[in-house]
Design a protein around this nucleic acid. Structure first.
Lengths: 205, 205
DNA sequence: CAAAAGCTTTGATATAAGTCAAATAAAATC
DNA sequence: GATTTTATTTGACTTATATCAAAGCTTTTG
């Protein structure tokens, strides 16, 4: 009996430790009570992926929502000419999905890909919306995700439409220097919506 | 006494008729009960504006949410060089605001402007969020506004990044021919993110 | 650790779209 | 309805950035 409790306690302890970054993230970014936080994090399952693994392909319906526990991912799409356009980079302790597909339940035009070996906590679409209807504070959190996603995109459009290639680079260097130091030129260029050659020329000045 | 009732009934009748498009719109775009719909529409106040009136300027905090009962509006921002970039067109029976400012409570970089004589139903930010906390179905409607705004922007970025000026024009001609027939070249060009000269050349082919 | 595959840099050239300018055309205003 | 203002068209020229190509670097992988 004692053995059973110890084992069980041990498993809980381990599971909690494993998910502590996720828990901390949710506490910092929402106003969800401890009990509900535990219910929410129990819906996340751990998956690990090697670098350069495509987690979602264009044409598939995105039915998962990810928390990046470790590693790094990006979302991107392909032009007709086959050029990659990176839309979002998710480092450690951030969330990612192909939201347009996740929301609309339509085929995604975006890909999701790991750019480093990564550990993800995965929540299924079904569970996500189940929680939205059961836990008002989770619905509120979802709402704030949408608000932030909107603001992020709005800023992105503004940058794209008003700034030159060099200005976008300089801007990123100030706002998110990590992007410039951590990402390959190929990915960085596609994030800035320029070619690798142009990025190389900008950097060399 | 009879006179009083008649007058009162008459005023209600008039007010309801006045707001019937708004009511119809909300019924069609949400799942809000009759009682709550009435509460919601009572928060909207009618305002009329002449053509080419700036309703919100860059630098101001947007504290209003609009339903276009009649007329047409646009949101746009200015580049450092002073070029206008139209971001959204709101025809009859649609909603508009400077959402990034409305959401973030920060200064708007966008302008809101009437492009025709317009009748707007206006809801204050305060009332909007009051309703969000009081009426779950209104919160849900707000959520769906955000979802749609996200999808709209996402599509916009995809178009901007993958299509040429001519392709964007052709695309709009298929998807939203009304934009091309109703808007001036100046506004249409700024919506497509091209110059008037380029638009003129595209059209003449 | 060597070969292959994938990145990055640099140069030469091409191109879509912008800028400037001037002539019409249309709309707004007194 | 004449005049001023605003919008559109067309032409000549410029420019930022893409494309193509080749050489030098780095990783990855057997």
């Amino acid at each position: 009996m004692l053995g059973f409790f110890c084992m069980f306690g041990g498993r809980n302890y381990k599971r909690n430790r494993m998910k502590e970054k996720l828990k901390y993230y949710l506490k910092a970014n929402s106003i969800i009570d401890e009990i509900e936080i535990n219910k929410i994090i129990s819906c996340f399952k751990l998956k690990t992926y090697k670098k350069n693994t495509t987690i979602l392909s264009s044409g598939e319906i995105c039915s998962e929502f990810y928390f990046v526990n470790k590693g790094c991912l990006r979302t991107y799409f392909l032009t007709k000419q086959g050029n990659e356009k990176t839309r979002y980079i998710a480092f450690d302790c951030s969330i990612v999905s192909s939201f347009s597909s996740f929301i609309s339940r339509q085929q995604s035009f975006e890909f999701i890909e790991t750019i480093e070996d990564s550990e993800l906590f995965v929540m299924k679409h079904r569970d996500f919306y189940q929680l939205v209807s059961e836990i008002p504070q989770w619905a509120k959190y979802y709402n704030s995700i949408l608000e932030m996603a909107y603001l992020f995109q709005n800023k992105g459009i503004e940058n794209l439409v008003t700034l030159s290639a060099k200005q976008r680079y300089d801007n990123l260097l100030i706002e998110k220097p990590m992007y410039i130091h951590k990402l390959s030129n190929k990915i960085l260029a596609s994030y800035l919506n320029i070619t690798q050659e142009t990025l190389s020329r900008i950097k060399s000045k």
